[in-house]
Simulated assay, not measured.
Amino acid sequence: MRIMSLNGWGGKLHEPLIAYLQTDQPDVLCLQEVIHSPEAADDWLLYRDGDHLLPQRANFFRDVAAALPHHTAMFCPAAQGVLWNNDEPVPSQWGLATFVRNSLPVTAQAQDFVHKAFSPHGYGDHPRSRPAHAIRVYDYARNRMVAIVHMHGLRDVNGKMDTPERLAQARRLQELARRIAAPDDPLIVCGDFNVEPGSETFAVLAEIGLTDLVTAGGFGGTRTSHYRKPGRFADYMLVNRNVGVREFTVVTTPEVSDHCPLILEI
């Protein structure tokens, strides 16, 4: 089974990202920072947050679903706010999504928030609402269940240091993983955590037997050249002892986002 975790950056690098997914075709794609704008007539909209302007693929969720036609697509919104078509506001949902190959039955799933709750009337103040999604699938190749959980961790404008909110987030992520996975399941927890490698988040997840493959593998970061700020880590993939890791890599080329894809073969 091939599992990919990626922050898609709202589809800003649409063409290389879609081409990459069409070629790679992971069995499970855990995708963060996904845009879903059902009322949008145009392909591109603009996100405005003060002086920060970012082009967004209006129906990024739909685009990825079309690139993975043999997958079941599940969207988990964090908030509904406004993107802009010139001066026209367009309602747009923002969150994460999970895509599962149709040959892998999803036997259980849970969607919840690791920070705040759904924001129906605007994206809200920072740090904004953050969702997580957990699935349990049956792997016929190995005749076993596999549990996979991913989240998009909260963004603090002051940086990626540990805070009480991030500790509470880690506890909620741990609880969601406990809820979806049976004791003997291979368990994978991944996503854009928005923390540094030494964060107490990893001690919380170690309580349920999870270890991180990014730091253990000696990778130098999970950010691409499109990320111009200090700090090269944001994304992680953790596994328990029931996961038979065949290969794990942080993909540096092609660059399809300001985050690198993380790929695990089990």
Rank of each mutant, 00 (worst) to 15 (best):
S103N: 12
W94I: 12
Q22W: 08
R48T: 06
G81E: 05
L68S: 03
P197T: 05
Q169G: 11
V251L: 02
E39Q: 15
D24V: 15
R246N: 12
A108W: 15
A181R: 06
S225E: 03
G217T: 08
V204A: 05
L13R: 13
D27H: 12
D139W: 11
G122P: 15
A134P: 11
L31I: 11
T211K: 12
T252H: 14
L31C: 13
I148C: 02
V137M: 05
V245R: 06
I35D: 13
G221E: 02
H150K: 04
P38C: 13
T23E: 14
L17H: 12
N242F: 10
C190N: 02
R62P: 00
A181P: 07
R178Q: 14
A134H: 07
N240Q: 07
R128A: 10
D156Y: 02
T224R: 08
S37M: 11
A216E: 11
G8L: 10
D184Q: 13
I188K: 01
M1G: 05
N143A: 09
H150W: 01
V250E: 08
C260Y: 01
R144C: 12
Y47T: 04
C190A: 15
L187V: 04
P261A: 07
A40D: 05
A234V: 03
D258K: 01
M161S: 11
E207C: 05
K116G: 03
M145R: 08
L29T: 11
W94Y: 15
P230D: 06
F248R: 01
R128C: 13
G8W: 05
Q169A: 14
D212C: 02
T215D: 03
V195W: 00
H14N: 11
D235W: 05
A67D: 00
R241S: 14
V239H: 02
L53G: 01
V245T: 09
I148Q: 03
E39I: 13
L104D: 05
R246E: 14
L54S: 11
Q22P: 09
H52T: 08
R172P: 01
G209R: 00
P16Q: 07
G8C: 14
R2Y: 04
I188L: 01
D156Q: 09
P55E: 04
V204P: 06
G11C: 10
V137H: 03
M1T: 08
D63Y: 10
H133Q: 13
E265A: 07
L68M: 06
Q80E: 15
R2K: 14
N240T: 04
L96P: 08
A181I: 01
R246H: 12
N158T: 14
P197I: 07
L46Y: 09
H226N: 06
H52V: 11
